[in-house]
């Protein structure tokens, strides 16, 4: 059980970190920059929200197979940790992106303009004005992505299969246990999930409340 949970944590942490690095510039661009065919770009990025996990998993599996389009380029990541990492990033992207975008949308462009007239260069504007303004939103988005990855099942199973230590994450481990009628062990694992989910969602909610108390009533 420990092995499965450790693998889940590793996957969720790496996924959340990747999304942080990838999502911030993406969200920033979507809010503040002119993006060509914005609606189209957003639709593609948010599609995993409505796509069945098995469908996303299926395409990734085909692409990442040794003779797949990506597999031939050296990314033969099917049934490997790298494969479920990529799948998790794509699958959780809409959650992180939505949270990040909301954080950036709260930043009033007028405030940034005025700080320019006060002599603050781009670096100072980011460090002193923007980051302290959006960090609760960034953290809550990252926690959401982490939690979402922990609970993911279909995509991981499709792309990674069920290899202990490589791709068998906790959610799949529980499925296995139930298949093997080992209900006692399954109950323990499930309980850990309940506790984890509760803590994570509580943290996200607390951050959101804090965030609104800072930014909420600055409206004219």
């Amino acid at each position: 059980m420990t092995e499965a949970f450790l693998l889940s944590f590793k996957l969720a942490s790496l996924t959340a970190l990747t999304l942080l690095v990838l999502g911030i510039p993406l969200a920033y661009a979507l809010v503040f920059k002119r993006v060509p065919a914005r609606a189209l770009v957003e639709a593609v990025l948010l599609m995993p929200l409505t796509l069945p996990p098995t469908v996303l998993g299926y395409y990734l599996l085909v692409l990442l197979a040794p003779d797949g389009a990506l597999g031939r380029l050296g990314f033969d990541w099917a049934f490997r940790f790298e494969g479920i990492w990529l799948a998790s990033v794509l699958f959780s992207l809409p959650f992180a992106l939505t949270a990040y975008r909301e954080a950036f949308q709260a930043v009033e462009p007028e405030v940034l303009e005025v700080t320019r007239t006060l002599g603050l260069g781009p670096f100072k504007r980011w460090v002193r004005v923007v980051l302290p303004w959006i960090w609760p939103g960034l953290l809550s988005g990252t926690l959401l992505a982490f939690a979402h990855t922990l609970g993911e099942f279909g995509v991981v199973l499709m792309v990674g299969g069920n290899l202990p230590g490589e791709t068998r994450v906790a959610s799949i481990y529980i499925f296995d246990l139930v298949q093997a009628l080992e209900f006692e062990e399954a109950a323990r694992a499930a309980l850990i999930f309940v506790a984890l989910s509760f803590v994570l969602v509580l943290a996200v909610r607390t951050l959101e409340v804090r965030w609104r108390s800072i930014t909420g009533s600055n409206a004219r």
Binding site: E110, V111, N218, R220
Partner: peptide, 9 residues
């Protein structure tokens, strides 16, 4: 500006 544009945090 009209909305004063103070930094809220």
């Amino acid at each position: 500006p009209q909305g004063y544009a103070l930094v809220p945090h």
